[in-house]
Design a protein around this nucleic acid. Structure first.
Ligand code: MN
Ligand code: MN
Ligand code: ZN
Ligand code: ZN
Lengths: 158, 158
DNA sequence: ATTATTATTGAGAATCTATTGCAATAATAA
DNA sequence: TTATTATTGCAATAGATTCTCAATAATAAT
């Protein structure tokens, strides 16, 4: 099932109605694999044949989340950013404090942390969000200061 | 050095000026160890002898972050929430999707993830933010459905 | 201690994101 | 084809944060 089919199914099962506006929004979102936000999405659609009101976009976002198509990634620059869920396996993010670049990476060890916490607290853990931050290679080079450690692990953080 | 002393040092070194308003804000923040947000901080101060304008609070927050006293924890309910850095060792958060409760916990394994990522990418990782979410014991009990797994680990998530 | 410099304050205006009311429209079911 | 009512677009609104500006006050220099 592609994103449109998933959404149609969700809409039907929820007693909602599908509309061309909603499908256009979904198509635009899934045109790339990038993170996105409401405003750039709105402007992209505006610069094409089909312009859709911001209100409709804002009203569609929760439906896309509810239907499992997208999710919130992070709040930045005063507004929320989203990313695909369908067709993307779960991943973590690294944010460069120098240039703002976001790098995605896959990490299984977090599952161990989930399990450990779940076991020790008797909670059910359904997911996580992990963000690392620091400085990317380019930014380190730019600053002249090379990465402090290379093969040897860094010691004592705090 | 306590929080006031740290801030005075920061202010001096940065060529800024210290003010009673700023010290009152800092004192109020460090009165408890809880997460906080601008509005409740503003109301707390208003309900005491010393009322301080919201503008000043908003202008002080970045200074407190810059001086290493506090940091952003998460954006929720339409506004940012903060927590202490000074006097609090780094920790992760669990958020109950049922009741909204936040649980703090300490976790060393994330350091391994940092190191692993740092090594494999040649980046310098300076920190991280890990949030788990799911359902707390009370919410599981309330729902009748007990935690799915107890001693045996849960398998296959996605 | 006095004065000069200029960062900071408070009040309100302005901005920005996100939500909502409402009349017109259109998707579904009968 | 008709009836029902969810959805749309627009404008109004709410809420958080920033900004403007005149008055104030913290520091540095007399
Ligand atoms: Mn991502
Ligand atoms: Mn915390
Ligand atoms: Zn960078
Ligand atoms: Zn709970």
């Amino acid at each position: 099932m592609n994103e449109i089919e998933v959404f149609r199914k969700y809409v039907k099962e929820s007693g909602l109605r599908n509309t061309p506006e909603r499908e256009v929004i979904i198509e635009e979102i899934f045109l790339t694999h990038d993170h996105f936000d409401v405003d750039t999405l709105y402007l992209c659609l505006k610069n094409k044949k089909c312009s859709i009101s911001k209100a409709s976009i804002y009203r569609t976002i929760p439906l896309l989340i509810e239907s499992g198509l997208i999710k919130e990634v992070f709040f930045e620059d005063g507004h929320m950013h989203y990313e695909h869920v369908l067709g993307h396996e779960h991943h973590c993010h690294f944010r460069c404090l120098g240039c703002g670049k976001i790098i995605e990476f896959k990490e299984d060890e977090v599952m161990d942390i989930e399990k450990k916490f779940s076991r020790s607290h008797g909670f059910e853990v359904t997911g996580h969000k992990l963000e690392l931050f620091g400085y990317c290679r380019e930014c380190l080079k730019k600053e002249g200061k090379d990465r402090r450690v290379s093969t040897v692990d860094r010691v004592d953080r705090n």
